[in-house]
Design a protein around this nucleic acid. Structure first.
Lengths: 165, 165
DNA sequence: CACGAGTTATTGAACATTTAACAACGTGGA
DNA sequence: TCCACGTTGTTAAATGTTCAATAACTCGTG
């Protein structure tokens, strides 16, 4: 009984190749674009901005570190570093969690909220200009659907991250 | 004459919000997945793998640094660092360009080629499993189309990179 | 030819991310 | 209670990326 990987890998068809290139091209360009836009206008990379958004939506603008990491789909380690930086900027503060002495809550400060509110319009405009003002309503639904399917296949299991991968 | 940004930014509709979250979720997960897959199976991140692929397709497996950077959509600086690393691994070598004394050619070595050939099947399988075995032929076309539209809007002008942004 | 402006690639420093290891705490069962 | 095991969050070190500055060269124009 052969237990090796298939001797004939199924390569991508021409359509698949082309779509894959398009995908890599577009996603790379967009991520770069948003990173620079936010770095310029808000002094932080896209992912850090995402953290502030999450916090701003949480009750009392507070969230447990692990929950925040899960929502943002990053490792706890990465979050620790990120929050350390945001704290240095005065945009987030750490607090001990009352119910679990191991835990920490990240808290979006008033200053952090102000920075976020100031950056939001420009960021939305950038996202609009790059995507939603360029796609039809139908394409937006297609994109949503496609991304949903992709994400389904990527959930799970892995070393440090029972969640992320 | 009012020259300020609009006082009422056009926020995203619910559909747009949802699609945007899906997009961020899926692309983050996929990129992470492929990065880990390649780091594990080939000892390099996704983008480095992409550099080897580019070189493998070039005539004589050689390419000018700037051209390679353009194709991979990264800055020349980033490419310099990346090639330095790949060179340390023995997978790429630098050569002076005969026709332009400023120039360098990156050259994929035989060893680099072997590493690439060994890694390719697993990588294709991962991409397949994540995307192309999960989407219909129609969805693949839609994705291609959508990414094309996105990329169009992102070409642009910028600091160091007349190309990338 | 000589000059100035642009191009090519690299570098160092600051910053971000990954990985593995770790301390501190919680939880459930003997 | 006590202990084994899981969870929470952090850390150091290695690695990767960005940003600004720079050396070396090319090219067009006077």
């Amino acid at each position: 009984m052969s237990n090796e990987p298939p001797t004939e890998p199924r390569w991508l068809t021409d359509e698949e190749q082309h779509a894959w290139q398009s995908y890599l091209h577009a996603t790379t360009l967009l991520e770069d674009h948003l990173d620079r836009q936010l770095q310029r206008d808000a002094g932080m990379p896209h992912i850090y901005y995402g953290l502030l958004v999450q916090l701003s939506r949480a009750p009392r603008r507070r969230m447990r570190m692990t929950e925040l990491a899960q929502n943002a789909k990053i490792t706890r380690s990465r979050l620790s570093h990120a929050v350390a930086r945001l704290e240095k900027n005065g945009w987030v503060r750490r607090e001990d969690c009352p119910s679990d002495k191991r835990g920490q809550n990240a808290h979006l400060t008033d200053e952090g909220m102000r920075v976020l509110e100031k950056a939001a319009p420009g960021h939305v405009a950038a996202v609009r200009a790059a995507i939603f003002d360029r796609l039809s309503a139908e394409q937006i639904n297609q994109l949503d659907e496609i991304c949903g399917v992709m994400a389904e296949g990527l959930q799970p299991q892995g070393a440090d991250l029972p969640w992320l991968r």
